[in-house]
Design a protein around this nucleic acid. Structure first.
Length: 445
RNA sequence: GCCCUCAUCGUCUAGAGGUUAGGACAUGGGACUUUCAAUCCCAGAACAGGGGUUCAAUUCCCCUUGAGGGUACCA
């Protein structure tokens, strides 16, 4: 599911929930050539992952063929549609679209040709004169001369309906009040309005949503990076962050709030506050927002994740401690594994050559040995942050070493990396014996 | 070609006929600091161009430009 489609779904969802409506799911699978079961399953999975649970459906248009066929027949009877026997080859020779060749075929002749087994499509008899207008909820009145509209196909040669017929029939029969869809549909909407008129139905309200563009402009595609809901999930984004970010792409609550829960978004949502302009997808801001949502999660969420990652660790309280230390520096949930590793396993070797080059000196092994001995002196029951810090300070002061030159090499030996939570917290969490053990291996660095 | 839509910092946006044009991300600087984050503070940064209407327009109207879409027996 592309993020553009996801945002359209989000707006539909928020609007339905904000107004007490029904958010239903309809699968518009009327193109046999493009039908793909995997794509359908992905779509359902992504919708669920985003938390956009539908109240009704999914309804499949491919299972409602008879309804559309009857609707097309109804229009023929009413004189609003006609059979067209033109071959694809003939159509291809036409330079300016369909020439309405079969529009005035006598019904008896059409009947004969059908009985003779000739293939046909059913086309709409678009009025040749006059104008059709509708009011888009974001852009106001949009008026189109009917002469600019073609005699669109309603029922295809394979008896499947086109989107135009199927969506109009369904939106009416499913009592759809509002159609929020991508703005590539604006040009087709007059045709839909004409169809509603021909059936004698009241048209729903239309709201066409702007597209989401890639950062430099142009379509947001896989080629330019992550573009689908699945991509962002795999990257370690939280569904709430994605939904929140996407909702703000073209909409704002009217005040300065940005980080919001689904509930807050529903309460603040209104169509009037949607901006009609196409917007660029700024992944940097999504990253920031993901961080905000990660920090809003309880520590226990990450403790549970850690528990899955390290099933062999028996110390239950350790998961929570590590979660607490890591949560503020997590940008993606997927970073949890790599960032937590040294809390549960001794590093094999230095994994951060840059930090080593900056802080490691010829005296580092000796310094680490001194501080290791100080740590050992602390009684087990007093092995806390305060005393760990005191041990480091004592070594620094009595030997005239700068803290950075002592703590960073020690961090490297204990963690294998030069960045992370406070060293005292790490040491306390890992424990005295393990830290002393790791520091004893400093010479291997 | 024809038709349609859109236009405020780099990006997402707020905004009103008279504002020091506000916020957020990103960027730069600073505070904090054993590191990296997080957090806090500060700074730079915008009304596409040209005509009208008006005492006054970035805001309303028109044109241009730019961007996007439609012109399918695809959605």
């Amino acid at each position: 599911m592309h993020v553009g489609g996801a945002r359209t779904a989000i707006y539909n969802y928020l609007f339905a929930k904000a107004t007490g409506g029904t958010f239903y799911l309809r699968i518009e699978d009327t193109d046999r050539k493009r039908y793909n079961e995997d794509a359908l399953n992905d779509l359902l999975r992504d919708l669920k992952w985003l938390g956009l649970n539908w109240d009704e459906g999914p309804y499949f248009q491919s299972e409602r063929l008879e309804i559309y066929g009857n609707a097309a027949l109804e229009l023929i009877e009413k004189g609003h549609a006609y059979y067209c026997f033109c071959t694809e080859e003939r159509l291809q020779t036409l330079e300016h679209g369909y020439d309405r060749h079969c529009r005035d075929l006598p019904p008896e002749e059409a009947k004969k040709r059908i009985e003779a087994g000739e293939k046909f499509v059913i086309r709409f008899k678009t009025p040749l004169e006059g104008t059709t207008k509708f009011s888009d909820l974001l852009r106001g009145e949009i008026e189109t001369p009917n002469k600019d509209l073609d005699d669109l196909v309603l029922l295809k040669r394979d008896k499947f309906p086109t989107y135009h017929l199927a969506s109009v029939v369904d939106d009416h029969s499913m009592q759809t009040s509002h159609v929020l869809r991508g703005d590539e549909w604006i040009s087709s909407t007059p045709k839909h309005v004409l169809l509603y008129n021909a059936f004698g139905w009241e048209a729903p309200l239309f709201c066409h949503l702007p597209v989401i563009l890639a950062p430099g402009g142009g379509k947001l595609s896989k080629r330019k990076g992550a573009a689908s809901v699945g991509d962002f999930r795999d990257l370690g984004y939280l569904s709430h962050a994605l939904v929140n970010f996407l909702s703000l792409l073209g909409w704002s609550p009217g005040d300065d709030r940005e980080v919001m829960s689904l509930k807050e978004m529903i309460d603040a949502f209104s169509l009037e506050r949607i901006h009609p302009k196409a917007v660029a997808f700024d992944e940097k801001k999504l990253e920031w927002m993901n961080g905000m949502h990660i920090r809003a999660l309880p520590d226990s969420f990450f403790a549970d994740e850690l528990k899955k990652l390290y099933p062999n660790c028996q110390d239950e309280s350790k998961f929570l401690k590590v979660a607490e230390l890591l949560k503020p520096r997590l940008k993606f949930t997927t970073e949890l594994a790599s960032m937590s590793k040294y809390f549960f396993e001794a590093p094999e070797k230095c994994e951060d050559e840059k930090a080593k080059a900056k802080y490691w000196t010829e005296h580092s092994i000796e310094h680490i040995d001194w501080v290791s001995k100080e740590l050992e002196k602390i009684p087990n029951e007093d092995f806390c942050i305060k005393n760990i810090e005191a041990a480091f300070m004592k070594v620094c002061e009595s030997n005239g070493i700068k803290l950075g030159l002592l703590a960073q090499p020690a961090r490297l030996v204990i963690c294998g990396v030069g960045a992370g939570p406070g060293l005292w917290e790490i040491i306390e969490c890992i424990g005295k014996n393990e830290c002393v053990y790791r520091m004893g291996k400093a010479k291997n660095f």
